[in-house]
């Protein structure tokens, strides 16, 4: 295995641990079995993001995202088709349209999705930060229902950093009994990619030395 292959392997393992933790947390929230695909990890040019995610540019998705800052800069996103996000919220909040009455059900949905997203994203990021020994701060969650290009445009506004390359860590999470299927995606800046590889090299070197 070359150094590059080993770094990519380490990145895959990092994604696997983080996203598995997210699946566990979603399973606890829904009290349902969550099937997850083996995470797909790729380093791609920012312009190729949509193609890499294999999402139709007209599909409207419900997404919760949190900005990452500190030693790692990027964005962690949880995405569901809009119908699935509604089902998810109604399952969790336990409110039907009738029960909601005068309450703005949409507002409840937004709030609940941000909370769900925050719990799942935080669980994945916390374990990744611990493994890397890095301080990763997270912004408050944002919620939007939009196509991927619109979502990315909203996310890009006010960004202090500009990506040319991003790491995509992508997995599908599917609830077995409820036909709810989502994706978790992490995008990291070039600087973060370099830092991450440096930390992974260190981690692997330490592990090799300790294991030999």
């Amino acid at each position: 295995m070359t150094t590059d292959e080993l770094e990519l392997d380490a990145l895959c393992e990092l994604a696997n641990v983080g996203l598995s933790r997210a699946a566990t947390r979603l399973s606890q929230l829904l009290e349902d079995d969550i099937e997850m695909t083996t995470p797909l990890v790729r380093v791609v040019a920012y312009e190729e993001l949509q193609q890499a995610l294999q999402l139709d540019e007209r599909t409207i998705i419900a997404a919760v995202w949190q900005e990452l800052s500190g030693n790692v800069e990027g964005t962690s996103m949880l995405m569901f088709p809009t119908e699935d996000s509604r089902m998810l919220v109604q399952e969790l909040v336990g409110l039907s349209m009738q029960e909601a009455g005068e309450i703005d059900l949409r507002a409840i949905e937004h709030e609940a999705m941000m909370e769900i997203g925050n719990i799942i994203i935080s669980s994945a990021m916390a374990v990744i930060a611990d493994m890397l020994g890095q301080d990763i701060r997270m912004s408050m969650p944002h919620y939007v229902e939009a196509t991927l290009p619109d979502l990315m445009a909203q996310r890009d506004r006010g960004h202090a950093w500009q990506e040319t390359q991003v790491i995509i860590m992508n997995t599908r999470l599917k609830a077995r009994q409820r036909e709810i299927e989502g994706r978790m995606v992490m995008l990291l800046s070039v600087t973060s990619v370099q830092l991450l590889f440096a930390r992974l090299r260190e981690l692997l070197l330490n592990a090799s030395a300790a294991g030999s």
């Binding site: 641990v17 598995s20 933790r21 566990t24 399973s27 079995d33 374990v127």
Partner: peptide
């Protein structure tokens, strides 16, 4: 060995005769 410690996985492991589920990392 897994970070995916949801009930489905742990139950499947126990049914298959695993001694223990070791949480990653």
């Amino acid at each position: 060995l897994t970070a995916n410690t949801q009930k489905m996985v742990v139950d499947a492991a126990m049914a298959a005769g695993f001694l223990q589920v070791l949480e990653k990392p």
